[in-house]
Design a protein around this nucleic acid. Structure first.
Lengths: 344, 344
DNA sequence: AATGCGGGTGTAAACAGTTACAGGAGATTC
DNA sequence: GAATCTCCTGTAACTGTTTACACCCGCATT
């Protein structure tokens, strides 16, 4: 004697109405008399009925699911982003299905495939280790996509434009006055966003008549370890830079660790700059100066872009560029000519 | 002229078979002749057909979805856990739907509700701000649940038993030899796990004939800020402890920051111990000693417990207790009588 | 009295799969 | 030569909702 499942028709029978009326009540349709709706709601509460969203999306064509794909949830930049996204989503009665590619393009492909099987209403593609296969997959189905990069020129994909340049300019301006020997620890070579940052950094230096020796242009992996290793390599060289800019904060934290292990000090021996402005950087000692990327704005823009793409298709989001900016803390010496009031 | 959707019957028609055969091919049933399956697969690839998992779970009764609920993805303890869980899930062709309660019992309730609507095959309840309403909700539906706490005695819920005691014992033993003035910065009072840790800590001290003055028993919030504030309060007191144990690593990091801001040093002025062993603690200077909770084991046990609960219902997981243990790094002075070889 | 209107409700056909059951075609057994 | 078995395939019922459409009823207009 299997207990019979509580579905919409059981509710309908018990409330003495049709399934249509129950459905309408559930969806807050104005086409139900308040008195009827009340009765239906009472039965629902009484039986502890929980609508089946699978069936729901099957017949309505909308899944109320959003897919989020990131490279590495272990990087504190992402949890924050996800949290914001999740709150936005649930506030609009969407659920989030989540995937971590671990920087692996093959995993990415599988993620996308699975999300399409779930018929997600949109995908926020916050990883940047792209693959042509993935792009093809996405193009084939017509699911809205927002990505963090301009790399996806495919018409249909909306992209969130982050202006790394503004922050990098401020950073170089900030350092230039006290330093002329700058090093850069880049991110992994297969990440679009990492390459972009390096590119802009070099371009900005050039604009200032500076040049980075090959040996001071290192590659990390956007994790702390990469920063440690790169910095150790830097410390082994006879000639050393006086300031170091990193492709992200974790890298900078790793570099800081390597510096401290070597018995040296920041900012006395090196000025150090991160990128992202994760909360962590103001927790360590000295607190890191960094280029802030406003995560919350990214989440907001990603979400509403997707929302706009699903609802009717009208009203595209404003799509303003997201600006980055320098946050000066304690890991970088202020330019020599700054007034002493700025020192702590 | 709307383009017609590619569904299973289109595939069937094109391949000259019935939908049943396509379905069977899709699910790798041995009841299809290899030659037929091959033909079907070719058509599928040709049309770029993506099965609809909503419809799938509607008729099969299994959603291949797992829900994960945590309190605060911003706490580095969780991303790691989630990552592991996600990898396990995708390896077994499950998807993860994710929710962050933000320590709010009401959010928790909504999460659970939404997950039940999705007909998840199981819920990993990794948050501990429980509510009777939630328990009732879960009891009503018969969805498998694993929780991180013994609080849920409801027969049906599987729980993962983490033995905080073992690590705490080691920690107190470690500190006892050099210190007798211990303070504890607890977690938020509505968290079961936090209360448990405090309780066990006090019990362990008592066992050693020690006692914590009321003023040295502070409450944090399991974030860095809480640690900072608690530590500042501690620093204002005339009489100060010589060692501080914290309810989690973020709290300890906050405390460390407050100590350093006050111009004091760890471990010279205070020994400091964290809890969790997030990667971060070996990134700061000095690296924190801490009580390790093996996250990966928790994820593994959670996942396989759920898996066992869905598949047939047989073979319950081993359910061994997960042991915690002390990891000594640089933030705690070794006991006075230890030989000097241990110093760095 | 006929017509129109609109709010509230029911009927039944989708939606896209899975799967119990039936059955056909060969091969094997009696 | 019939019965049985095995392997493969098809038919159709079923999963739980949404929603287009039809309909009814009471009221206001003509």
């Amino acid at each position: 004697m299997k207990q019979q499942p509580v579905n919409i028709s059981v509710i309908a029978r018990r409330a003495g109405v049709s399934t249509a009326t129950v459905s309408r009540t559930l969806n807050g349709s104005p086409l139900v008399r308040e008195k009827t709706a009340e009765r239906v709601r009472k039965v629902i509460a009484g039986l502890g009925y929980v609508p089946n969203s699978g069936a729901r999306s099957l017949s309505s064509g909308r899944s109320n699911l959003l897919g989020v794909i990131i490279s590495d949830i272990t990087n504190p930049f992402f949890p924050d982003l996800i949290r914001r996204l999740e709150h936005l989503a649930t506030d609009h009665s969407y659920d989030l299905i989540f995937a971590d590619t671990d920087y692996d393009p093959v995993r990415l492909e599988h993620c996308v495939q699975r999300m399409m099987e779930r018929r997600v209403d949109g995908i926020a593609l916050l990883a940047s280790e792209m693959h042509q296969r993935v792009v093809d997959l996405l193009k084939r189905q017509s699911v809205p996509v927002v990505a963090l990069q301009a790399q996806l020129q495919e018409s249909r994909f909306r992209t969130i434009h982050v202006d790394y340049g503004s922050g990098i300019r401020e950073a170089v301006d900030h350092l230039r006055l006290g330093h002329s020997d700058l090093a850069f620890i880049a991110g992994p070579g297969n990440l679009w966003t990492a390459n972009r940052r390096r590119e802009l950094f070099l371009k900005e230096l050039e604009r200032n008549g500076l040049k980075v020796p090959r040996a001071w242009l290192l590659e990390g992996d956007h994790r702390a370890d990469g920063g440690v290793h790169a910095m150790r390599k830097l410390l082994q060289q006879k000639r050393r830079p006086t300031a170091i800019l990193c492709s992200n904060d974790l890298t900078a934290l790793g570099a800081l660790k390597a510096i401290q292990e070597a018995g040296l000090q920041v900012p006395h021996d090196f000025s150090l700059l991160g990128f992202d402005d994760i909360d962590l950087v103001s927790l360590v000692h000295p607190r890191l100066s960094t280029i802030r990327i406003p995560r919350s704005e990214i989440a907001t823009q990603a979400f509403f872009t997707l929302l706009a793409a699903t609802r009717d298709g009208l009203m595209a989001a404003p799509q303003t560029a997201i600006m980055t900016s320098l946050i000066v803390r304690d890991s970088s010496t202020p330019p020599r000519d700054s007034n002493s009031a700025k020192r702590r």
